[in-house]
Write a protein that binds this DNA or RNA. Structure first.
Length: 272
DNA sequence: AGTACGCCCTGGCCGC
DNA sequence: TGCGGCCAGGGCGTAC
């Protein structure tokens, strides 16, 4: 499931391929992709002939800037953005829902088994207002003080970390891993966290996201990078999907509970 | 305001 | 071998 690190890995791979390139052909074959706004035909028409000036990331969203407008891509649970140099080896299958051809011949395809992802176009100036995303956790704005403000809420800490309007880009895997590294139980009320815990959690969030990027993402289910390769970070998960196994730090059996309808993994020994 | 729950969607897995 | 049933879960809408 692509979260901030996976999106960032793909973005970095794609930057040298697409930045400065012009889109010569666009095909969207799935109506659901544009459900938030527009239609497949309108998005296709808005893409052809446009040059990608920059490829940015905001939370879990890709932003392909097109000189005034931006193509927004979110991968949902099973989305993949795959790059095919000169179109070589590209064969769309039943899960390939979109395909962009660039002026140098490269092809960017969008594949999504469960169709939870989306793809639409907005004026660049409207992005922030429309997407309603919180602070970027890897930016300098994400200080312990910023996290303290976010945590002034009666909610439990884990659902808060998953709230994209508070902090952008954290999903189920990195929330569980960050809480483990910070020694904080996912069921704790956010407002009950002390200064040391807030600092520790802020540092843990940044460390785990950076580690995820360094190891090219977590390949649970079907995450693949732009070249179709899996990431290596899942082997370094300390709690996520390790329930029933001993904690690597204290040996206590990792537990799995439901929190906000999400599978939640934690160590009862290390997390208080 | 938080929290619960259903929905979307498909492949993988389980039990029979 | 085959098939029904269940599960995962990001984000959103609805109800309480």
């Amino acid at each position: 499931m692509p979260e901030l690190p996976e999106v960032e890995v793909i973005r970095r791979d794609l930057v040298p391929k697409v930045e400065g390139r012009r889109i010569v052909e666009a095909r969207l074959a799935e109506r659901r992709l544009t459900r938030r706004c527009g239609t497949p035909r309108r998005v296709e028409a808005a893409l052809v002939g446009r040059r990608v000036t920059r490829l940015r990331r905001r939370g879990k969203f890709f932003l392909f800037d097109l000189d005034g407008d931006s193509l927004v891509v979110r991968l949902g649970m099973t989305g993949q953005l795959l790059w095919w140099e000169n179109g070589e080896g590209f064969h769309p299958d039943r899960h390939t829902h979109a395909c962009l051809t660039f002026d140098a011949g490269g092809v960017l395809s969008y594949r999504d088994i469960r169709k939870f992802g989306e793809m639409f176009i907005l004026p660049t100036a409207a992005l922030e207002h429309t997407l309603q995303l919180g602070v970027e956790p890897l930016s300098s704005e994400f200080t312990a003080q910023a996290l303290r403000e976010i945590c002034r809420a009666p909610t439990r800490i884990k659902p808060l970390l998953l709230n994209q309007t508070k902090i952008a880009g954290i999903g189920n895997i990195y929330a569980d891993e960050a809480l483990f590294r910070a020694g904080v139980r996912p069921t704790r009320r956010a407002a009950s966290l002390g200064p040391n815990e807030l600092r520790s959690l802020r540092d843990a969030i940044r460390a785990v996201l950076r580690a995820g990027i360094r190891h090219r993402g977590s390949s649970i289910a079907n995450y693949r990078d732009a070249s179709g390769e899996p990431g290596q970070f899942a082997a370094r998960h300390r709690v996520y999907q390790r329930h029933g196994e001993p904690c690597l730090v204290c040996g206590t059996v990792i537990r799995r509970i439901l929190l906000g309808q999400r599978g939640t993994h934690y160590c009862p020994g290390c997390q208080r």
